[in-house]
Simulated scan of single mutants.
Amino acid sequence: MPASSREPDFEAPIPDEFAGRRLDRALAELLPDYSRSRLQAWLVDGALTVDGGTPAAKTKVAGGEQVRLFLPSEPDDARVVAEPIALNIIYEDDAILVLDKPAGLVMHPGAGNPDGTLQNALINHDESMAALPRAGIVHRLDKDTSGILVVAKTFAAHAKLVADLAERTVKREYEAVAVGVMTAGGHVDAPVDRHPVDRKRMAVRDTGREAVTHYRVITRYRAHTHVRCRLETGRTHQIRVHLAHIRYPLLGDATYGRRLALPRDSSDAFVDTLRTFRRQALHARKLGLTHPVTGEYMSWEAPRPDDFERLLAGLDADAQAHADN
């Protein structure tokens, strides 16, 4: 058991709306950075407690129970080190940091990415953040997704933001380019879980966790659609999986996409534009949240990066060139 004098690495109540859920599912919502098996192991060994106890993972929660996590110490060679990686910071105060992540930057060290990550950069920016889980990262963007995200700078802010994400009060809006011409906007309400065979992928599965994505058409092109997506939940790869599920995968998505869609009579320049866009066309455009200390509602936007703007310009030019056809 952790020493009583030590401050917990995470502390928050189980949201009332989780009432009736299994404890392991509620904990997975509150602590999405950790696998369910790891959370269950911590619950067994006492690193993770619920109202001071260690109930069984299948226990149904009532809502309001206090969750406390004391992360087990890591060996020195497993600790993430500071690296001087540039950050595009949009807003910062004593409690939170909001930044615009470029495509290509991994969130934290893992298999195949031992360093050069956002977590390394955050520790370099403020060494005190090394004490926080994942250096304060509370939600993720995929490596090749660009855009805005919030990072906590204190334990209290981290716990409050994680709880707000679980309660769906954090507003996240994305822009994407999908393959295919959508007739209208809509929403996808389909549970997401690990793919049963390829564990690096996610899939729509009945056994998965609830996932809801709303999408709205911005512009229709000859073979693509520029859409705006709003998340109710934040599952791994959610937008990519959901749009692929309704047969409108993201342009450039090597994991969930399909062959490049080249409209008839496309110019060489347009074909080059599509072929040289080598990531999923997804950008986290807007973030809104209640400040964990002041209680003030705040929102920020991250402009589309240059490669996304060039893609849209190419799609516009192609559409105009064939407007009379």
Results as ranks from 00 to 15, higher is better:
residue 152 A to I: 11
residue 128 S to W: 06
residue 126 D to H: 09
residue 129 M to T: 10
residue 166 A to Q: 08
residue 134 R to G: 05
residue 107 M to Y: 07
residue 132 L to E: 01
residue 93 D to Y: 10
residue 108 H to C: 04
residue 135 A to K: 07
residue 137 I to Q: 00
residue 105 L to Q: 06
residue 110 G to S: 11
residue 158 H to P: 15
residue 118 L to A: 06
residue 101 K to D: 04
residue 120 N to Y: 02
residue 173 E to Q: 14
residue 123 I to K: 03
residue 108 H to Y: 07
residue 116 G to T: 05
residue 98 V to F: 15
residue 166 A to L: 09
residue 110 G to M: 07
residue 102 P to F: 02
residue 150 V to S: 08
residue 144 D to H: 12
residue 114 P to K: 02
residue 164 D to G: 12
residue 155 F to R: 13
residue 165 L to D: 05
residue 102 P to Q: 05
residue 151 V to L: 11
residue 148 I to R: 02
residue 113 N to G: 05
residue 174 Y to A: 07
residue 107 M to W: 03
residue 108 H to P: 08
residue 129 M to V: 13
residue 170 V to R: 03
residue 167 E to G: 13
residue 112 G to C: 03
residue 104 G to Q: 07
residue 162 V to K: 14
residue 105 L to I: 08
residue 148 I to K: 01
residue 160 K to H: 11
residue 110 G to R: 01
residue 143 K to Q: 10
residue 159 A to M: 03
residue 108 H to Q: 08
residue 174 Y to S: 06
residue 137 I to A: 00
residue 138 V to Q: 01
residue 160 K to G: 03
residue 92 E to S: 14
residue 168 R to K: 14
residue 159 A to L: 03
residue 172 R to N: 08
residue 108 H to N: 07
residue 102 P to T: 01
residue 124 N to F: 11
residue 156 A to Y: 08
residue 167 E to D: 15
residue 134 R to F: 03
residue 142 D to C: 09
residue 101 K to H: 12
residue 119 Q to K: 11
residue 114 P to Y: 02
residue 150 V to I: 10
residue 155 F to I: 13
residue 105 L to W: 07
residue 104 G to Y: 05
residue 96 I to L: 15
residue 144 D to S: 09
residue 154 T to N: 05
residue 155 F to W: 14
residue 167 E to A: 13
residue 153 K to N: 11
residue 149 L to K: 06
residue 143 K to T: 03
residue 142 D to Y: 03
residue 144 D to F: 05
residue 109 P to T: 00
residue 124 N to L: 04
residue 130 A to P: 07
residue 172 R to E: 11
residue 133 P to H: 03
residue 127 E to K: 12
residue 125 H to A: 03
residue 162 V to I: 09
residue 137 I to E: 09
residue 173 E to V: 15
residue 97 L to D: 11
residue 112 G to M: 06
residue 137 I to T: 08
residue 133 P to S: 03
residue 128 S to T: 15
residue 170 V to I: 14
residue 147 G to L: 06
residue 113 N to D: 12
residue 123 I to N: 09
residue 131 A to G: 07
residue 162 V to S: 14
residue 146 S to P: 08
residue 109 P to R: 00
residue 169 T to D: 14
residue 129 M to S: 07
residue 102 P to A: 05
residue 169 T to A: 11
residue 142 D to V: 00
residue 143 K to I: 06
residue 135 A to L: 07
residue 117 T to H: 01
residue 138 V to M: 11
residue 133 P to A: 01
residue 145 T to L: 01
residue 163 A to F: 13
residue 156 A to S: 11
residue 145 T to F: 02
residue 108 H to F: 02
residue 164 D to M: 13
